[in-house]
Design a protein around this nucleic acid. Structure first.
Length: 571
RNA sequence: CGGGCUGUGGCGCAGUUUGGCAGCGCACCUGCUUUGGGAGCAGGGGGUCGCCGGUUCAAAUCCGGCCAGCCCGACCA
């Protein structure tokens, strides 16, 4: 490609509305442009990177037996009603009707449609199957953000597996696990697999692949000494047991005027350290108020509650709901002597005594509370957010908490969809058996963003060679100089013959402009051709990753740069 | 969806307080000089000031409504 003919609209200044690194650099580098919130056009450079990412994904999924297909983006509502998701997935699912008033929706994922094709599977002999496509998803997110990290319209590689039994699903799941590790490694990222919540996908088990980044939206708990890693949505930890001081009296009510927080209570009374308080949170599960109890110094992880209760209708109660259910305002709530409200308690409270909690009367608290004696817990449920420094549940070493980007997610769906949609095959005995499904997703654009977030410097993006828009760029220092132009052109042709994807910067610009642009867009090798080097028969090769510079004889330039690139490609 | 901020040539911004010719830098076009880290000189083109309505002799500026974008909190590839 000749740069003078290419559409690479680089910007000198950062776009004013860009905060995230990937947003800033991808827009400045002329890879993408925003159409509306969470909706981006891919410009030529963005398209080149996208295609390379997609190709890597294809190769690895094909390698585990994947068969590529392409399913539509507009789906009939009917199928989604069968699986229940037409109603279950509120908000992000875009629904509309056609001229005949038929319910339609924009694909946010493709389980239903792949499943509808899978109804044509009739015999166990046809299993296992692994189908996938790279297709647009639309999710009307409440809030898109972070450049390409969280958008409404995006391309996803989603694959789906169909097996005769759970053991077969486990095999497909493990194959995807390995393929995903290879994919992210080829994309130049260090992805950590973690246990995760399945969210609205349902199913029994899921693993997310996480790349450490400040721009991320998920926290993972990670053990440096063993391999334990989990999204904090599901992570657990071992707690040091607390030995409560004995208290032989009854529950004692005491005045706490104006005290509305755990911290304030701990500050005011020396017997009420945060870990000796009971945190009481009123939640609404559907229409039912539920009182949640946690240790005072612990935080609630709402997702754990959602997963355990198997409903998405979980939210903090409004003030008037709190008063109606408990007779007091937040800040003085408690579970002692409470009737008629379901009580769910975190196991960290089990067997505790001599605790302090709200009295369900504004400005009053209770001390000397014994969990076993004074509170009737309906359900014990781990719903605590793990904090850094707590002991790893596997090995006991302190956990770290890291902020990460979710670059892939694999699910064991089990038989949820196949039952709903009637996907069954005849087994060896001729009996109908419901098939076991898995689904596995990688967001292409989010991966592009994650690569940028984990590989950039003050000059711009530093692409790994596997996805770079070009492998090498020739910077022609002085377009007015015939010898320079001739040498650069011939190098350009030689590199192409060597199979290198190369762009020649033949614009009539000053060298500084060209250097800045090629570094901004992150091309791994820059070959500078100019009168100064040609005077002693050399060109200069700079490696983007480390800035190292090497002078090479003109005659050998093409072959030695091609050799470097082949080595970087891993050939 | 709640809170905060912002909408002025392609990009970055000033002007809005106190209504009175729509400006600056970069980019763009022409010419000349220049060419190893974002060139210089000269000339030139481009904007319904987010949209709708109101006030006024006069609105980018004041008032009302709406729309869009970004950031912070509840959701996910």
């Amino acid at each position: 490609m000749r740069w003078s003919r290419a559409f690479i609209p680089t910007l000198r200044d950062d776009p004013a509305d860009a905060e995230a690194v990937n947003h800033r650099l991808l827009v400045r580098g002329g890879f993408i442009r925003r159409l509306m919130a969470g909706s981006w056009s891919l410009l030529p450079l963005g398209m080149k990177v996208t295609k390379r990412i997609e190709q890597i994904i294809r190769e690895e999924i094909d390698a585990i037996g994947g068969q590529e297909m392409l399913l539509p983006v507009v789906h009939p509502g009917e199928i989604w009603k069968k699986t229940g998701r037409w109603d279950d997935v509120e908000g992000i699912l875009v629904k509309f009707t056609d001229r005949r008033d038929t319910d339609l929706l924009l694909a946010m994922t493709h389980e239903e449609i792949f499943s509808s094709i899978a109804t044509e599977l009739t015999s166990y002999r046809q299993l296992p199957q692994l189908w996938y496509h790279l297709q647009t998803k639309f999710r009307d997110e409440q809030r898109s953000k972070g450049g390409l990290l969280r958008v409404r319209e995006f391309t996803m590689k989603d694959s789906y597996t169909f097996d005769i039994d759970e053991a077969g699903l486990a095999v497909q799941f493990d194959r995807h696990y390995d393929a995903y590790k290879k994919i992210f490694s080829r994309l130049g990222m260090k992805a950590i697999p973690v246990h995760a919540s399945s969210g609205w996908m349902g199913g029994s088990e899921s693993v997310e692949f996480m790349v450490e980044s400040e721009a991320g939206e998920d926290d993972i708990a990670y053990c440096p000494s063993c391999e334990y890693a989990a999204n904090t949505e599901t992570a657990t930890s071992r707690l040091t047991p607390i030995q409560d001081e004995p208290w032989d009296g009854d529950v004692e009510r005491f005045a706490t005027p104006g005290i509305k927080t755990i911290a304030a209570l701990a500050e005011a009374f020396d017997f009420a350290a945060a870990d000796r308080q009971i945190k009481s949170l009123l939640y609404m599960v559907g229409d039912e108020p539920v009182l949640l109890l946690l240790r005072g110094d612990h935080e609630l992880m709402e997702q754990k509650l959602v997963d355990a209760l198997e409903t998405f209708e979980v939210r903090p109660a409004h003030e008037e709901e709190i008063v109606a259910a408990l007779g007091a305002h937040a800040g003085s709530l408690g579970a002692v002597g409470l009737g008629g409200v379901r009580i769910i308690a975190d196991p960290a409270l089990r067997d505790r005594s001599n605790m302090t909690t709200g009295a369900n009367e504004d400005d009053w608290h209770l001390r000397g509370v014994d969990l076993g004696r004074d509170i009737v817990v309906d359900t014990w449920l781990d719903m605590r957010l793990v904090a850094a420094g707590e002991a790893c549940p596997e090995c006991g070493e302190p956990l770290q908490v890291k902020r990460t980007i979710e670059v892939g997610h694999i699910f064991k769906l089990g038989t949820k969809f196949s039952e709903a949609l009637g996907i069954s095959v005849a087994d060896e005995k001729g009996d109908e058996r419901v098939v076991w499904m898995g689904s596995y997703g990688i967001g292409v654009g989010r991966n592009m963003a994650a690569i940028v977030e984990s590989s950039f410097d003050e000059s711009g993006i530093v692409w790994p060679i596997s996805v770079a828009p070009y492998e090498a760029a020739i910077t022609v220092v002085k377009m007015g100089d015939d010898a320079t132009v001739t040498a650069a052109d011939s190098l350009y042709e030689d590199l192409q013959s060597e199979g290198v994807d190369v762009i020649i910067d033949d614009r009539d610009e000053r060298p500084g402009v060209k250097f800045a642009d090629v570094e901004l867009i992150g091309i791994p090798y820059r070959i500078t051709v100019g009168p100064r080097g040609l005077a002693d028969g050399t060109v200069e090769v700079m490696r983007r990753a480390d800035g190292s510079v090497e002078s090479i004889q003109v005659a050998e330039a093409a072959s030695s740069v091609a050799a470097m690139i082949r080595r970087d490609r891993g050939e």
